[in-house]
Amino acid sequence: MIDFQPISPLQRTWLLELGLERAFLARLPQAQPGGQSAPVAAPAQEAAAAMQTAQPVERHLNDAGSPSPSAPAAATDAMSARDQALAVLRKSGARPVAAAPVEEVVQRPAVLIQPEKAQDMASLLEQVQACQECGLHTGRAQVVFGSELLSEPDWMIIGEAPGTSDDRSAKPFDGKAGLLLQAMLNSAIPNASVYKTHLVKCRPLGNRPPTQEELAACRAFLDAQIRLVQPRRLLAVGHLAAVALSGRDEDLETLRGQALTYTDAQGRSLPLVVTYHPASLLLRPQHKANAWRDLSLLRELQNQP
């Protein structure tokens, strides 16, 4: 057993400041009034932990391993206790544990948000993921960008905002409403190629409708998607999508049941059909008959050259 020299209250304070554990310090003899002390043996494992946390003291040593002239006297006292820990390690044959290397933080370059200049879908997705133009990015699990990319699909289906299932899977229309939508498409235009997305790319908390400010913040991304995907026709599901794409601030019943027109930023005109959102049909099945009439219009447009 190694007899430790008693440490003073000043030494104890410094060792605490340097990070040594209280459990280790409690095992060291404390200087008592009258010169008496109660030596306590410390296990080699605790001494190794003390060595690891006491390493900051080394900055006060010069190349020869002795205290530099400018080192504080209290630091020298702390090193005395450190040397006692070294003695325990040498006796037990243990080695000090090396401090874990500090990982270098790599700062990524900022992404320039310019959807109108995106040359491909990968760069547009990167911009969407970096976007903080509205508060929706703070509550999302992940960006819901779009379905698997197709070259010039027959239809681009645009909803209002991602739901809870979409937010978990990062896939648009991924839930009961999505299953109903797919069944409707399979019955009306079974052989058509389809690309799906939403007006906004982040889920509003509580599955509420997106606000006008949120729609405006994300509109440039949607316009860039339409430009890059190059769909032949558009299907808007839900009132917000119908108004946003048609440019007509009218109720859904007025807009549906007819072939409308969407004009993109390049002046290209695309046929546009609007209908109920499938989530609305799950709550109001009486609208399914009208929805079927809208799907019949999709089939008529699909069969046109």
Results as ranks from 00 to 15, higher is better:
77 D>C: 01
78 A>H: 02
225 Q>S: 13
3 D>K: 06
55 Q>S: 11
221 F>G: 05
160 E>H: 01
184 M>A: 07
274 V>G: 11
214 E>H: 10
304 Q>E: 11
204 P>Y: 13
28 L>Y: 03
18 L>T: 08
98 A>K: 02
243 V>N: 07
294 D>P: 04
14 W>C: 02
165 S>G: 06
243 V>C: 03
214 E>G: 09
140 R>Q: 08
70 S>K: 02
281 L>Q: 02
63 D>Q: 06
157 I>W: 05
93 G>V: 09
293 R>S: 12
51 M>N: 02
152 E>M: 12
249 D>R: 10
249 D>L: 09
20 L>A: 06
288 K>F: 10
257 G>K: 03
65 G>D: 05
202 C>Q: 03
29 P>T: 09
227 R>V: 15
262 Y>W: 08
85 A>M: 15
16 L>K: 11
113 I>C: 10
265 A>G: 00
156 M>Q: 07
191 N>Q: 15
297 L>S: 10
228 L>K: 06
81 A>P: 00
161 A>E: 06
11 Q>K: 02
80 S>N: 01
9 P>R: 01
88 V>R: 02
197 T>R: 01
33 P>E: 13
232 R>S: 12
3 D>H: 06
139 G>I: 13
16 L>H: 12
235 L>Q: 03
71 A>N: 03
226 I>Q: 04
256 R>E: 11
178 G>R: 06
213 E>P: 04
300 E>W: 14
298 L>P: 09
138 T>D: 11
33 P>H: 11
176 K>M: 13
46 E>S: 09
91 K>W: 11
8 S>Y: 01
304 Q>R: 07
145 F>A: 15
86 L>G: 01
70 S>C: 00
154 D>I: 04
292 W>T: 14
